[in-house]
Design a binder for these strands. Structure first.
Lengths: 182, 182
DNA sequence: ATTTTAACTTGCCATTGACAAGATGTGACC
DNA sequence: GGTCACATCTTGTCAATGGCAAGTTAAAAT
């Protein structure tokens, strides 16, 4: 049903975001080109500008989408703090492109209202899970928990980890996150 | 004494690396331009290619330099594991540009021999410090420790942390890293 | 049926990375 | 002292990119 006719693509905005996630997954955010996305979507090279203004605008939208995906992933993990941490890592691996853009402020507009809101929603879920679990200073515990899963996810994605860690990121994450709250 | 005469700059390679670190510190790696670096160093636009081949070559060299700086920073922190973690965060904040490039494989050539060697040296120091300290599985403990300080450093640099964390990254790092090995 | 408006296109320009070919000093060798 | 080889930088060029301006098309509103 997708109208291949150039004009009124129908869902170009989503198509471009999908293409961006795919392209970033292939070659990283540095190699991303708006014109390549336009080609993938079958539209002219200036079409993306209409929906996103410029490159930063597109990546801002992608980051916001990422935070909403993360929110859902954390909620789905339930009340268990450890499983939430595992879900965080799982999200990073499964939505690598989103994850990379979300925490790279030089690629997007960090003060964009929609992005700020989406980030706040995710942050709320994250800290809520910690507060339910710990009996000590919740802020510090939340930061420690966030740091360890975020750090592991980042290291995993960067390929800096030795092969000894294995091939299952979520299992490895469970092992190390369990060390924080034994 | 710095010869401003164009030809035979004298230390162009180092000058370009310095300029790159400065430029990345100002606007992030995404906005880095070889031609801008050349302008900063007062040479022609093609001069960088001689020393580094291409953009990835320059960033590979910067990453390798970063791992050596990290190695020195960790060694200087001494035998205490907690202080090594704090030093890791201090390095990331103080050498932000290096740190960002070091863990972004889409920006450099991860299999470059010099980079591989520099990374291995840093990894050796890192794991050595952990093995001296823990009595449990050293590999898993090393990974957990690395993850928590790396994650905190990354979050700090990304600006994603709430203001509540404060303005002193090393103090905050000490607080949360202490939770891993109480 | 006409007008308005949303969603694209075409055309253009400055900037960039990469490459090729040339210029210029520097030191080696005789 | 002269020449030669080489390392280091320059000039020139090209295709690709991001972003802007102006035009075009189709769908919706009146």
């Amino acid at each position: 049903m997708t109208r291949p006719s150039a004009y009124h693509h129908g869902d170009l905005r989503r198509a471009l975001l999908d293409a961006a996630a795919e392209a970033i997954g292939e070659s990283g955010p540095a190699a991303l080109s708006l014109r390549d996305l336009a080609r993938r979507a079958g539209v002219s090279h200036a079409a993306p500008a209409y929906h996103f203004g410029d490159k930063a605008g597109l990546l801002t939208a992608l980051a916001a989408q990422g935070f909403d995906l993360l929110t859902r992933a954390l909620r789905a993990a339930g009340d268990d703090l450890l499983e939430a941490g595992v879900a965080y890592v799982g999200f990073a691996v499964r939505h690598r492109a989103h994850f990379e853009v979300m925490f790279r402020p030089d690629l997007h507009r960090a003060d964009d209202p929609e992005l700020v809101a989406a980030r706040a929603r995710a942050g709320g879920v994250l800290r809520g899970g910690v507060a339910r679990r710990t009996d000590r200073d919740p802020d510090a515990d939340a930061l420690a928990a966030w740091s360890i899963v975020h750090g592991f996810a980042t290291l995993w994605l960067s390929g800096a980890l030795p092969p000894r860690v294995g091939t299952d990121p979520e299992a490895a994450a469970r092992a190390i996150a369990g060390r924080l709250f034994p």
